[in-house]
């Protein structure tokens, strides 16, 4: 449902509910887009050569 739908009502119920949903979706979408872009940029800038171990995983050993 979008504000263009014929059933849409411009009242608080719809704004809050659909608003929060779209915010959540936007955050997820933005996160994904960011990751895509970052990956793309990293690859472009030649930083694809990471050490064979993923850093983050190495860190586990610390716990």
């Amino acid at each position: 449902m979008t504000p263009l739908s014929f059933e849409w009502h411009w009242n608080a119920d719809y704004l809050v509910f659909m608003g929060l949903l779209y915010v959540a979706l936007a955050v997820i979408g933005a996160g994904l887009i960011y990751t895509f872009l970052k990956t793309w940029m990293d690859l472009e800038s030649g930083e694809s050569e990471l050490p064979p171990e993923i850093e983050s995983r190495k860190k586990y050993a610390a716990y």
């Binding site: 955050v27 997820i28 996160g31 960011y34 990751t35 895509f36 970052k38 990956t39 990293d42 690859l43 930083e47 694809s48 050569e49 990471l50 993923i54 850093e55 983050s56």
Partner: peptide
């Protein structure tokens, strides 16, 4: 596959947001 590894790595980084 470097692309995928990098993508996964980056996803990990912002996992907090998700």
């Amino acid at each position: 596959v470097p692309h995928l590894r990098l993508f996964g790595h980056n996803l990990h980084h912002i996992m907090g947001v998700f």
